Simulated assay, not measured.
Amino acid sequence: MEQARQARNVVILIYEKVEPLDFVGPFEAFISASDFGRDFNVYTVAEREGAVAAVGNLSVNPAYAFDSCPKPDILIVPGGWGSRKERLNPAIVNWVREASGEAELVLSVCTGALILAATGLLDGLDVTTNRSAMHELRAAVPSTTRVIEGVRYVDNGKIVLSAGVSAGIDASLYVVGKLLGIERAEKAATIMEYDWRRE
């Protein structure tokens, strides 16, 4: 009898002033690629329970708080104006560092890279972010880290970083292809009616 496949937990961090498309885009990409939940369980997590006000005052209720969140297999760290504040928040930085250690793969979108930089996990890697935040990322990482401009995403093996906003969808589909094959990623893009920009 064929063993039932275990769906990967895709955990998306949200916080005050997170950019909506930075987390909703990857959410949609992994849901569309999930084969009706067989391959990915996708959910949001925040530092604590209760509504989170994203950029534009979009109110979002996280599925979990840090203390109740199931172990992530894939961790997504989105950006937004709030990333500048949250990269100085020990609760978020420590949780991301710990969750990243247990995860199979970590993906940042836009200025989510600033939060990852605060964990020390980007030391010596190739990184990218939103074009308007390159100077902030350069200031946040050591000289051993190479900041790359003009790309949609970069893959360091376990850690994938993407440029701004819609690039997070491209990177999410790339990750789907990396894990489940290119045909699954292409099918998800078709379901979304999304023009996937690959590197």
Rank of each mutant, 00 (worst) to 15 (best):
C110S: 14
W196N: 07
S100E: 02
I14D: 02
S108Q: 04
N61L: 12
A113P: 02
F40A: 08
G150I: 01
I74E: 04
R97Y: 08
G150N: 13
V127C: 13
E186R: 15
N41M: 06
I74H: 01
P142M: 10
V93N: 06
A4G: 08
F30D: 09
A167I: 01
E186N: 09
A7K: 12
L88E: 15
A189R: 05
A99N: 07
G80W: 05
V106Y: 10
P26T: 11
S68G: 13
G82E: 06
A91S: 11
V106H: 08
Q6K: 15
N94E: 15
Q6S: 14
T111V: 12
E149L: 05
D22E: 06
L88D: 14
G112Q: 04
F23S: 00
W95C: 01
G37I: 07
L105N: 11
S34I: 13
D67T: 03
I31H: 11
D22G: 03
G120F: 10
F23R: 07
L116Q: 09
L21N: 02
S34F: 14
A103T: 04
L21I: 15
V24D: 04
S143Q: 14
S68C: 00
V18F: 06
E193N: 09
V52A: 02
A33M: 11
T119Q: 06
A63I: 04
A51T: 15
A91V: 12
L125E: 02
P62N: 06
E183F: 06
I74C: 00
L125W: 14
S162E: 07
T145M: 10
Y64I: 00
Y174W: 13
V10S: 12
I182L: 09
F27C: 03
L122Q: 12
A171T: 03
N41P: 01
N89T: 09
E193T: 10
V127N: 09
K178M: 12
